[in-house]
Design a protein around this nucleic acid. Structure first.
Lengths: 232, 232
DNA sequence: AAAATAAAAAATATCGATATTTTGTTGACG
DNA sequence: CGTCAACAAAATATCGATATTTTTTATTTT
């Protein structure tokens, strides 16, 4: 269920390690959305038996990254504009709720984490501003770390779990939309405002900002998903 | 993932049918929370091979009804007061959101469904009021049908899915708390008020009522769960 | 007697083979 | 020319056996 940040997944069993690896690869876009996941193929690729492979696949259904139907095997979970919009709506609801709880319950240590995460993100954004590079290898990771830090004081496991699922789903859409980081500067300002509001314990404001933050990306990405849907 | 109301689960494969059956039994409390689910035992009980059994179990992890750890097999998902409170909080959030969307988008057909479901529920409550019976075989089903009808015009699949998971989890707590239907009369009034507000398209009011509806049961059940936790 | 260790039992994870179903192809028929 | 049917190929689901790990039990040591 959970992969640790370092990437060193402590896998006690074959199933777990195959599960973790395949999961990453699906998120990385190695297997296209809605494409068939043939057990025999995967089985030999990962050097495990069919039963083991099937079980790993079954476990991926938990994360809604794989679907399975009747007598016709497994598929990578499909993507659609409709789905993306629904995910975005839910993210607004859950992300802002998690942030609110975090702001209400967070202690000084939490504040420190937020500040640190924002700092790390800012530094890489400065670096990116210099180079005309469109690829941001670490930006994604630090951006994610920042958002995780914001809600790290929320203690509702269900909220975090659902939010996590949606977040991963969302990242698949970002991937196919080939989002560049050219708009990083605007995003930076938004992050700064959110950090400020969070530290000032202004939950209403922070939540509003985070919702805007999500909303802002929806339409631009949705447009690209539409284009992607065409040549499928 | 979905079980149809009639209980006639259309299972194309062994895995699916075993999955569905075991799922119902866990929800029905046949296997105590946190108890071990030994593959060999289940395997022979359901007349399937170990691989098939394991796969069915793996699929139950999707619904968070079963947990699995490293090299030590499967267990029924445990229950705790803390978990119950978190579930209740999330239910308030999701149930009210789903209701709001339903109220905003529902058409006349939806209104008719709500009215019908409320009527069916009311009838059985009248009947129960007569007899001093504490057992309400059909009440649960009709109560659930009523709540499903209320949110049936919500079209966000993720919202419905998460809400469904939480609802099932919640029902496990109701079971161990041995909730009687003595408080049915108060509940009836609440249902009536919710129906009224929904039909009047007063989303704010309806949402507030449904949150109260959930809140009201939390403490009484939480207390019983504490007691249950003791003799475990 | 409590703690540590070794042996036995139980349970889990993994494998490769087989039966069943779906998918794809070819040829007959309207 | 397209639809249908029969067949062939591919893929899925299912099985039972084996290797590994965990848990239990028995034995020894401080």
């Amino acid at each position: 269920m959970s992969d640790n940040a370092s990437g060193t997944t402590t896998a006690k069993t074959m199933i777990e390690s195959v599960y973790a690896e395949l999961r990453e690869e699906i998120l990385a876009g190695k297997y296209p959305p809605a494409s068939k996941l043939k057990v025999e193929q995967l089985r030999s690729a990962y050097n495990v038996s069919s039963s083991t492979m099937r079980e790993a696949l079954s476990r991926l259904v938990s994360d809604t990254l794989v679907t399975t139907e009747g007598q016709r095997g497994f598929r990578v979970a499909p993507l659609s504009v409709r789905d993306f919009r629904q995910i975005a709506e839910m993210r607004k609801l859950l992300e802002s709720r998690a942030l609110r709880e975090s702001i209400e319950q967070g202690d000084e240590e939490w504040e420190a984490c937020v500040v640190a995460a924002f700092y790390r993100l800012s530094r890489i954004e400065e670096a990116l501003a210099q180079t005309a590079e469109k690829v941001a290898p670490d930006w994604d990771a630090r951006n994610q770390a920042f958002h995780n830090a914001l809600i790290s004081a929320c203690d509702n496991d269900w909220l975090l779990r659902f939010r996590d699922i949606l977040h991963h789903q969302s990242s698949r859409y970002l991937r196919i939309a080939l989002v560049d980081t050219s708009s990083v500067r605007d995003v930076h300002a938004e992050h700064e405002a959110i950090t400020k509001a969070a530290l000032a314990r202004d939950a209403d404001k922070a939540c509003h900002l985070i919702e805007m933050h999500i909303t802002r990306t929806v339409d631009v990405i949705a447009a690209k998903v539409v284009a992607w849907e065409a040549d499928d």
